[in-house]
Amino acid sequence: MSSATPKKRLKPKISSPPPPPSASRRSPIALEPPRHLFPSKQELLRLVVVLAIASSVAVACNFLANFLRPQTKPFCDSDLDALDAFADDCEPCPSHGECHKGKLDCARGYRKLGRSCVEDGDINETARKLSEWVENHLCESNAQLLCYGMGTAWVPAEEIWNDLDGHPLMKNFGWDTAIFIYTKQKAIEATGKIMQNRTEVSGMKELKCPDSVAEHFKPYTCRIRLWIFKHVLLVVPVSLLLVASAMLIWKVRCRWHLSTRVEELYHQVCDILEDNALTSKNSNGETEPWVVAARLRDHLLLPKERKDRVLWKKVEELVQEDSRIDRYPKLVKGESKVVWEWQVEGSLSSSRSMKKGEQGKLKSSHGRHLNFDQPSPESRRDLQASLQ
């Protein structure tokens, strides 16, 4: 018997489907990409130019930003050696500054500005005002010594230091602070550059205002007095000359006023005597023709003029020289009086008109008006009754 050999089962072949009839009909040109899928040469060139410009702008902006805002380095410590301070990994500590662990602290009297230390303006201004106050104090003290010999010129610096403690400007910095002490030191140092200074044997420093500067602080009375003492050989003769001139002018003026007033009184006396004589003549003896000289004097003179004996004496001299007036003693009410009487004989009308014209000129020149220049008949009668 023959052994049966197993037969392998054949797998059926799977046939691919036939292509569609439309695909077999397409032409080979339809399988190529479209023409506008890739850029042309001109567009590609433009793209390259735009990218180049954008890259240049970006590089320039980055460089400018790094230049304007450089990366700050820490400060080198102040206690480093001079060679180590110029290392590339740190920046040297600026002047008037103290650096520690890369940080900057400014010294007293300085403040931080950026990465440097500058002087503090408030402290400098306060120190300047304090220095001016000390200068004025020293110069006034020296000026008092030069003028009146009182006070002292040399002032100890320690005394000035203590005086600054009570100055109102120092209250802005507080008491017993580092800025307070630094401001006083700066003020005294500035003063020492202008004022004279010396050191005593004990080591104490003293300051003094120069005499040339103290001259401007002297009072005006002191300046005038010192100038007179300096030019005494010139001042004394000029002063005497001025006094003599003033006295001469005063005497001339007094004499002129006296002579003018004497003439004015003399004309008034003549008018009164003449009117009294005419009135007595017309009244047929009812009125006395004479007038008491003392009563006439008291009537014409002002109260302050009665003390001047020279004034009425001059009037009496003119009356005595006048031939138209008689002067003689007469017993009036039991007392002997000197009376004056006008001589009626002669051309009285012409003389009277002349005197009236002269009195008018005197009144216009001196601006004075007397009530008895042109008396009325009633006032004449009253005057005659009072004078007799």
Results as ranks from 00 to 15, higher is better:
S2A: 15
T5F: 14
K8R: 10
K11T: 08
P17C: 06
S22W: 12
S24P: 04
S27V: 03
S27K: 07
A30L: 08
P33A: 11
E43K: 12
V48I: 12
A52H: 07
S55Q: 07
A60Q: 07
C61P: 02
C61M: 12
C61Y: 10
C61E: 11
N62D: 13
L64M: 13
N66A: 14
F67W: 14
P74V: 09
D79S: 15
F86M: 12
H96S: 12
E98N: 10
D105C: 04
E119I: 05
D120F: 03
I123G: 01
T126L: 04
C139F: 03
C139G: 01
A143W: 00
Q144F: 11
M150N: 11
W154T: 02
W161D: 10
D165R: 06
P168W: 02
W175E: 13
W175D: 13
K184S: 03
K186V: 02
R198Q: 14
R198L: 08
T199K: 12
T199N: 08
S202F: 05
E206G: 01
L207T: 00
C209Q: 00
D211T: 09
A214D: 03
T221E: 15
I224H: 07
V235I: 12
S239I: 04
L242C: 08
L242I: 09
A244M: 11
M247A: 14
M247L: 15
I249F: 13
L258W: 02
C270S: 10
D271I: 03
L273R: 00
E274I: 03
A277Y: 00
A277N: 00
L278K: 02
P289M: 03
L296A: 01
P303I: 04
K304L: 07
K304Y: 11
W312G: 00
E316L: 14
E321Y: 12
Y328S: 09
V332W: 01
E335C: 05
V338T: 14
W342C: 00
M354N: 15
K355P: 01
K355M: 15
G360W: 03
K363H: 09
S364I: 07
G367A: 06
G367K: 05
H369V: 09
D373N: 14
S379H: 14
L383N: 02
Q384F: 05
Q384I: 02
A385T: 06
